[in-house]
Design a protein around this nucleic acid. Structure first.
Length: 723
DNA sequence: TACTATTTAATTTTT
DNA sequence: TTAAATAGTA
């Protein structure tokens, strides 16, 4: 056996990881240290050298993109397709198990996946139904609560109300939400994981089967696992499975959505004798950039400890620019980009990173003026677009008549005379009889409704039936095409004025071609339509799938994780913005911001610019701020302050000083805000101040309102009246 | 029912 | 500022 292709081009640490014996292994892989490479080569090593069947391997990632890349690279290395190798996201794999064992999972065979938008709508509807005041019980917060519980593996019956009526209500809403989902055969993202965990936990034979099958478990981005994902892994690894997990505690930036770095420590406890390999040699950045990143992250306590190094050149210093305001900041960035492009570099090799999406606007304006093509990451994805979701809702209803979520979405879209009144009656009936809207519609249309409404409901229901009948046996894309036109959606959006309607119609056409090119997996053994719908929910598609033009890349630092660029700008490095105001007070939060900073810095291969503005317009108000504390954490020898080549024309009134004083007066204390102070809010009524934080326009107070409960309010917006 | 005025609050995001 | 949700009007 010639193992050279698998082992050559690996450094010692990487090779050690790849060739580790069949024992639990934890690979701490710093930024740019070849994490994916190790995973890919490990898989190849197991299959090619150790003779492990691809069938016995399970590889888990967090994104579809990572999963696809891993499969691709393994096949490239082995030069043979590996069909039986399970590679996928946690959600994708959980979904696959649930489809195969829907009975054991206590799900209807045709269950549907709902995304967070569907979930939120469902919760809103639930609140209306139960006549719960949605200003006191904010749907978003309920959604957050439910998902947080599920991420921890907790069902309503596991939760204690602690004699807190607030919490009691939350739990009860969680319970009702579950009932609705179960009735409609709807599964949200967190539910996929939770169900899959329970499926294995409660079915000895199934568990034994999968444990026997998966001898090796490869996990990517391990620091991002949440409680339920980790529990699922641990269950699967069981006695004999060999977990091989790769992660970087310093790049854990998703604590706020349930990820727990602590699993890295937990892993070593749960799997005694774990082999730990650290990958510290970096192949991406210059020594200067690495030293800066190392120095910044060193300020975090409770790290595993790791120091990136490189054999490469020292490189140029990191440039820091103090802009006058955000416009000046944008101008500066664009000036440097011009130089970069003029020197014959690719625009696509440069990226502008920022903390929050709102920052992109000014930069975009500048880029448009300078006629530099750019692409903003994030934003609406293909399958999340309204018209696409509408069309999918019809398809889902065809597949499962009890899907209330889809029913409500399109029952009157396009308008067909089924108004609020009628719907209200149907909801009441559905509630009283614990049945779906579809059944309620059928029951009500025959007796309770007046003629016109009954006709409308009947027409809608027979439309769906007709679509189901006429599309039976058709190819998937013909089905989609048929539904788009029969439903009247195409016509409906065509009438929408402006370019918007046009795009929508185009998108619907695009949906048909997406269906055309969709290849059902023969191994899945389910109706192609259902598989397509699941695919749409699990893989929302590209944001701006614009053709491959050479573009400057704009994105948040979160979305930049895993990417690299020769030229990087980190903008808005100001205290309050980055680290963000909301995280600044909490030590955990601040450390996570610092990790984010570490991620940002390590995206750069050659050149890194850091900019901050002395004055920034936020929410329509001018704010003064200090350079981010993270800038000061970079050793001075790696930094070069950039002075503007041409003096920026500052407004004559040397604005900074007097205004700074002004903004200080807006801070809490000087307004007479103190803990225990009684205040009145226009909407929430009377309350008492429990807590306050921040300064200036960012100052926030926590108020316990008599009737509305506890809320955090931004002082400069809340208009609190002192009592 | 569709359009317009008003109100409200204000990270990060993948599945 | 501005986006989104809500309330009010034609």
């Amino acid at each position: 056996m010639d193992v050279t292709p698998i082992l050559e081009e690996l450094n010692d640490a990487q090779r050690q990881a790849v060739t580790a014996p069949a024992e639990p292994a934890l690979i701490i892989a710093g930024a740019g240290s070849g994490k994916t490479r190790v995973l890919v080569h490990r898989a190849a090593w197991l299959i090619d050298v150790e003779g492990v069947s691809p069938h016995s391997l399970l590889a888990v990632t967090f994104t579809n993109k990572a999963a696809a890349e891993m499969r691709h690279r393994i096949e490239e290395l082995l030069k043979v397709p590996v069909q039986h190798l399970w590679i996928g996201t946690f959600h994708g794999l959980a979904h696959r198990m649930l489809r195969r064992h829907w009975r054991e999972a206590k799900l209807p065979q045709g269950f549907q996946i709902i995304d967070s938008d569907d979930q939120l709508r469902l919760i809103k509807r639930l609140l209306k139904n139960l006549e719960v005041d949605d200003s006191r019980w904010v749907p978003k917060e309920i959604q957050w609560f439910i998902n947080a519980q599920k991420d921890e593996g907790l069902r309503p019956q596991h939760l204690d109300d602690d004699n807190d009526p607030n919490r009691r209500q939350m739990i009860s809403l969680y319970q009702s939400y579950e009932e609705i989902c179960q009735r409609g055969g709807l599964v949200d993202f967190a539910e996929l994981l939770l169900r899959a965990h329970e499926l294995l936990r409660d079915n000895d034979e199934l568990l034994a089967h999968y444990r026997r099958r998966f001898q090796h478990l490869l996990v990517d981005e391990f620091q991002d696992t949440n409680a339920i994902q980790y529990a699922w892994l641990r269950l699967l690894a069981g006695g004999d499975g060999v977990p091989f997990v790769v992660g970087d505690d310093d790049q854990s930036i998703y604590r706020w959505r349930g990820a727990r770095v602590e699993h890295i420590h937990q892993f070593q406890k749960d799997f005694p004798g774990t082999r730990v390999v650290k990958l510290e040699q970096n192949y991406r950045s210059t020594a200067t950039i690495l030293n800066a990143a190392n120095a910044v992250i060193a300020n975090n306590a409770s790290r595993l400890g790791k120091n990136l190094w490189t054999e490469g050149a020292e490189g140029e210093p990191i440039k820091v620019y103090s802009a006058y305001n955000e416009r000046d900041e944008a101008d500066f960035v664009i000036g440097r980009l011009r130089d970069w492009i003029d020197q014959g570099n690719l625009r696509a090799d440069s990226a502008i990173l920022y903390r929050s999406n709102a920052q992109s606007r000014v930069l975009e304006e500048g880029l448009i003026n300078a006629r530099i093509p750019y692409r903003v990451y994030g934003g609406l994805r293909f399958f999340e677009r309204m018209e696409i979701k509408d069309a999918l809702a019809y398809l889902r209803l065809i597949s499962n008549r009890d899907d209330d979520s889809s029913f409500e979405r399109i029952v009157n879209k396009p308008t067909r005379g089924i108004g609020a009144r009628t719907l209200e009656m149907m909801r009441a009936y559905a509630r009283a009889n614990a049945c779906s809207m579809w059944r309620a519609g059928g029951a009500i249309a025959s007796d309770d409704l007046n003629g016109r409404a009954a006709n409308a409901v009947n027409a809608f229901m027979s439309l769906i039936e007709r679509m189901a009948r006429e599309t039976q046996g058709l190819e998937l894309h013909d089905k989609v095409d048929h539904v788009i036109h029969l439903s009247g959606l195409a016509e409906f959006f065509k009438k929408e004025k402006g370019e918007k309607g046009e795009t929508r119609v185009e998108n619907l056409a695009e949906l048909v071609s997406a269906a055309k090119s969709f290849e059902p997996d023969p191994a899945e053994d389910m109706p192609p339509l259902d598989e397509f719908l699941a695919h749409a929910a699990l893989e929302a598609g590209e944001g701006q799938a614009d053709a491959w033009e050479d573009c400057v890349q704009l994105m948040t630092m979160h979305s930049a994780k895993g990417l690299e660029f020769p030229l990087v700008f980190i903008c808005g490095m100001e205290d309050g913005l980055f680290p963000h105001q909301r995280s600044i007070a909490d030590p955990h939060g601040l450390e996570e911001e610092r990790r984010l900073c570490y991620v940002g810095i390590t995206r750069a291969k050659q050149t890194l610019y850091i900019t901050h503005a002395e004055q920034r317009r936020l929410h329509g108000m001018d704010n003064f701020s200090h350079p981010s504390r993270f800038i000061a954490e970079i050793p001075a020898e790696h930094v070069e302050e950039v002075r503007p080549r041409v003096q920026v024309s500052r407004p004559l009134r040397s604005a900074a000083a007097p205004r700074r004083r002004q903004s200080a007066t807006a801070s809490g204390n000087e307004l007479g805000i103190r803990l225990g102070q009684h205040v009145r809010h226009k909407k929430f009524g009377d309350g008492v101040i429990l807590n306050c934080e921040g300064q200036g326009a960012h100052a926030r107070v926590e108020v316990n309102f008599e009737s509305a409960g506890t809320k955090w309010l931004v002082l400069s917006y809340a208009n609190l009246e002192l009592m």
